[in-house]
């Protein structure tokens, strides 16, 4: 493994996967997209029924298709995750002993058991993760880092009344993103300096690898702390004292399309969540349907 390619990876990750474009999703206010994304993730974690997770999946895909981003882009997001998901689902379906209790055995071979519960849990796992991956993707391809930060800040601003330091949190994220390239540069310098003295960071394992990495980690932390001091001084010199009394260059306004989009989404998502909880065993009456 070469240090180069690792670093390029990190830069890519830090800048995000933003693809400039003119789809409806690109046009929407970042706040709307953040709400949609967070609600999708939370719903995916909450739902416990196969039909609900399927509906959530359909919802994400229809958002992506309906707004002109395209389903192709969305499914591409699943590709790197798919093989791992498959492995996990297989483990979940066959090899988790707890899922054998109180369950109907569907199929059995030596130590492998497939029960109704294990099938449900395997399908749920795939569905849940697919929804979350696509929700994150939907958000990140259509929103630049800058919009993200402004969006988060405005979104949590009302919470400042109850003491949540919204602006300060957004600022922390901001500084993190800003600091990544600096860290990259400083670490490259450190690695180069140490490599010229014969260090090789890619090799070895366990304690030996640690011995090699410590002379990198310690200065990395110390340099970062020193830089942090400099950044703080520069911010203070420009009258920064936190969010209070601060104004913004931009005055973002929610448009009608934003209200419509968020309204439609909340209605759909709410319906799915409600269905998930409402249709209990009592309503459906049969165990097989209840599992769905």
């Amino acid at each position: 493994m070469t240090a180069r390619s690792e670093f390029e990876f990190s830069v890519k990750l830090s800048i995000g996967q933003f693809v400039p474009g003119s789809s409806l999703l690109h046009m929407l206010d970042p706040r709307v997209k953040i709400v949609v994304c967070v609600m999708l993730i939370v719903s995916a974690v909450l739902v416990g029924r196969i039909f609900a997770v399927t509906l959530l999946f359909v919802l994400v895909v229809s958002v992506l298709v309906g707004t002109g981003v395209g389903a192709g882009l969305a499914f591409r997001a699943l590709r790197p995750v798919a093989p791992f998901l498959a492995v996990l689902a297989v483990i979940q379906m066959f090899a988790i002993p707890q899922l054998r209790e109180n369950a109907v055995i569907v199929w059995e071979w030596r130590f492998l058991h497939m029960t109704d519960r294990s099938i449900v849990s395997g399908v749920l796992l795939i569905g849940r993760f697919a929804v979350i991956v696509m929700a994150l993707h939907l958000f990140s391809v259509t929103t630049s880092t800058n919009q993200l930060i402004h969006g988060v800040e405005q979104l949590v601003r009302p919470l400042e009344k109850i003491g949540v330091p919204a602006h300060e949190l957004a600022m922390v994220v901001h500084i993190s993103l800003r600091f990544l390239p600096i860290l990259l540069f400083e670490t490259e310098k450190l690695m180069m300096a140490q490599a010229s003295r014969g260090a090789d960071f890619g090799k070895g394992r366990g304690v030996r690898r640690l011995r090699r990495l410590f002379p990198l980690f310690v200065p990395m932390f110390l340099i970062s702390l020193r830089h942090a001091e400099a950044i703080a001084e520069s911010m203070e010199s420009r009258c920064y004292t936190g969010g209070r009394g601060r104004t913004s260059r931009l005055r973002p306004r929610l448009k009608r399309a934003d209200y419509l989009a968020i309204g439609a989404f909340i209605a759909a998502d709410g319906a799915i969540l409600a269905a998930n909880y409402l249709f209990s065993e009592a309503v459906w009456g049969s165990r097989a349907l209840c599992i769905l």
Binding site: N146, I149, L177, R178, I182, F185, H227, A230, I231, S234
Partner: peptide, 9 residues
């Protein structure tokens, strides 16, 4: 050091 004086993106 200009690097540590730029805080935005």
């Amino acid at each position: 050091n200009p690097e540590t004086q730029l805080v935005t993106t």
